[in-house]
Design a protein around this nucleic acid. Sequence first.
RNA 1: GGCCCGUUCGUCUAUCGGUUAGGACAAAAGAUUUUCAUUCUUUAAAGAGGGGUUCGACUCCCCUACGGGCUACCA
Length: 513
Amino acid sequence: MDRRVRVRFAPSPTGPLHIGGVRTALYNYLFAHKHGGDFLLRIEDTDQTRFVPGAEAYIIESLKWLGIEASEGIGFGDGPHAPYRQSERKAMYKDFAMQLIANGQAYYAFDTAEELEQMRERLKASNVDAKYDAITRGTMKNSLTLSEDEVNRRLENGDAYVVRFKLPRKEEVKFEDEIRGWVSFNTNQLDDKVLYKSDGMPTYHLANVVDDYLMQITHVIRGEEWLPSAPLHVLLYRAFGWENVMPKFAHLPLLLKPEGNGKLSKRDGDRLGFPVFPLNWQDPFTQEPSSGYREAGYLPEAVVNLLAFLGWNPGTQQELFTLPELVQAFSLDRVSKSGAKFDQNKAKWFNQQYVRKLSDEALAPFLSSALVNAGLNQDFSDDFVLKVCSLVKEKISFTKEIWDYSNYFFIAPKTYDEQVIKKKWSDKIPALLLDLIANFEQLDSFTHETVEAAYLQALAKNEILGKDFLQLFRVIVTGVAGGPPLFEIAALIGKQETISRLNHALTQIPSKI
RNA sequence: GGCCCGUUCGUCUAUCGGUUAGGACAAAAGAUUUUCAUUCUUUAAAGAGGGGUUCGACUCCCCUACGGGCUACCA
């Protein structure tokens, strides 16, 4: 039985999507495209208490920024299974819960929070696992212990109830995980999970299984944190009689904190010195900001590439992959089993590779927006900006660094690298600068070749060696000790500006020594 | 605590019983670059521990240790 591959990414809108979630979405996307299938985005908003305004839009914007486009679902155009937001599917879950009750696979439970608490306290005191299971269910207030009349009375009365799954006793549940191989659990360890909550919403377990069934999902690719509840899901498919179309499971290794302990969490925010979110985010309740990859100067292609390699590799030496290339190369059996720590250095390297590949035209907007911020955007031509990009491109690792490395093209330096001044300035310098200025004045064509020739001529005349002056010359023109080839910088900023900077140095620097 | 999953250089990883255990990032050294960056060359760096199975184990099995996840009317 060959079914069209259909996978889904099903986040909860409880905050910004963190990169672990992004990677899960990416692997789903890659898998779907690899097999010519569908990738859908479903929003699992069954917990109304944790709903965060803006989170859903954030998730969609993040995926779009990264190019991880869904073929159907919220934000990407509804498909045949709309709605894709579980809160809007609310009505249909109850029927499924009732179906299970009718089959004797689930039951009503009327226990209050206090009663549940008491039960747990009691069991803990006697050193027994505190769970609502085959043993304890007989001591609680549910449709298994209460008379039919009493249950009906309570239901008619509108008493609060939940629907719990009646877990079979001492049963070995096995399934073959696409990444981990055979995994088995004993139902003794599990509890009678709530399937349907007293607020009329399903829990994750019910909604997830029902929706995956209805949406004809063939592969469930999700984080390892779901592994312990996978047997419950398997049992649910059985209880519904859907075992023949049960999706295959693939539980992804977790993304760990770089400093060692624990999985990367939303709460890590900026504490780690690198973004854990794709986009900037501000918590609507606390106003607390969190930074994102986009704003930190990462390119979406780089983020996709580096995330793909956290827990997967192609088995070849190739490390740089475009999204289509990843689709080609991806396979679940090359996903590793153990958690991966995020490595900031490697992330930076990936980004650097992509920044270098950028055309000047593609890089220019990042510089232009910095110019707008500096109020200088009117003063320079597109062509000039493009040339600056070309010169500075290989110096930067992140797009947002471009201004730091190129501001002297637009603004004459106000300060000079002190170490270089201290080391290289001497009494012979002013005369040399004067000659340089004179030579430059005579140039009709101000190119890096003519500038260099004029520079060499002045050096020779003053009997100064290049190694004693070039870096000082650089500092005089740019203010800083490093950068692209100096004569090209001079040629770009032009004759007048270069001369003006020399004059400025002549008047400013001697007084500072 | 219980259950489940995992464990190769500092980090991401290759290896699917026989290799001098390979690559990348980071680190160190050198060359190139008038500078910085780049680039190139080189160096250092790993199978958690203990038992088996086998002619042979990083690879298969068991135990221990360690790490992680789950243990809600959260997902």
